[in-house]
Nucleic acid binder design. Structure first.
Lengths: 155, 155
DNA sequence: TTATCTTTGACCTTCTCTGACCTTTACTAA
DNA sequence: TTAGTAAAGGTCAGAGAAGGTCAAAGATAA
């Protein structure tokens, strides 16, 4: 069976999916109690599973009436396009930002899972290019062209 | 008589064939214990017998509640992808034959139109690689990895 | 005998989980 | 008001639990 962290992740995601607003408030200590672990374990789960990268935002308040609020972000199309535009404008497209972009495109359902894997596979294969400069330009070029293609054939 | 590696291979393949999902999770240390060998021997078996080329995918997670997951991929003979795979397994590939292959895959409905465009875009971008040998190896590698990916994430 | 395949073991990296200690906030008694 | 206190939540380093790597030694096959 999965780790405690995994179950806690599942539990929170289930709560989130059941909530109409895509937002839940929890008590750190209560949650820890329910899972019979130390409160800081909750932070561990939040830091590893509910990151911005993964499409969540977490805010909290300390002290009496404190809480931890978890939100499922739904990135708007405008946000995404502006981000991508920026990435493309920046001449240098690092491999990691390329991967981030691919992931976001998938999350937003602009590309299918297979398409995202196809794009990532390309990045992987490029790793055998020794010349870093060549590899980086290839990465940028590839992402750009793929995006243009996707846009052309109707996003 | 067979080596330890051979028996371990047989054992794992039997487990796989008994599993309805074609997927098993094992504990590296436990398996090593069962065969009275060091844990790294398990890695040796996985690396030599359960490769992507041989139709398996292996993923794992470290740390507490870690695991090694072995999947049997569909590489059956009637699978066109696997036949194509044989052709290009270790060879270089010219751009034109790569394009032909992509087109065939599309015609046979193994890939969508967008997917075919994505793959072709990659070939286009590779054109900036001057060194023909490098370019052809990259082309072969890319096609191969893309096919393996398509097989891995199964239809 | 040489080349290839197996096996081992020392050392490494990643992931989880815990506990001690810190900071912030609401409330309340002076 | 203000100072103090209790009740949250936050941080961080370290321990423990997997799995991974690599090179060298030991077998086997050609």
């Amino acid at each position: 069976m999965g780790s405690l962290a995994d179950s806690m992740e599942d539990y929170l995601k289930k709560l989130l999916s059941l909530s109409a607003s895509g937002c839940i408030d929890i008590k750190r200590k209560e949650l820890a109690g329910k899972f019979m672990c130390v409160p800081s374990q909750v932070n561990y789960v939040l830091e590893t599973r509910f990151t911005l990268e993964k499409g969540f935002s977490v805010e909290s308040k300390r002290g009496g009436k404190g809480f931890v609020r978890i939100r499922k972000l739904d990135l708007s199309a405008e946000n995404l396009l502006s981000m991508i535009l920026q990435d493309i404008m920046d001449a240098q497209m690092s491999e990691s930002s390329a991967r981030g972009m691919i992931h976001r495109l998938y999350e937003l359902k602009y590309i299918s899972f297979r398409e995202s894997r196809l794009m990532e596979t390309t990045l992987n294969s490029l790793q055998i290019v020794q010349d870093v400069t060549l590899r980086n330009s290839l990465t940028g070029l590839l992402l750009r062209d793929m995006l243009l293609m996707l846009i052309k054939y109707n996003f």
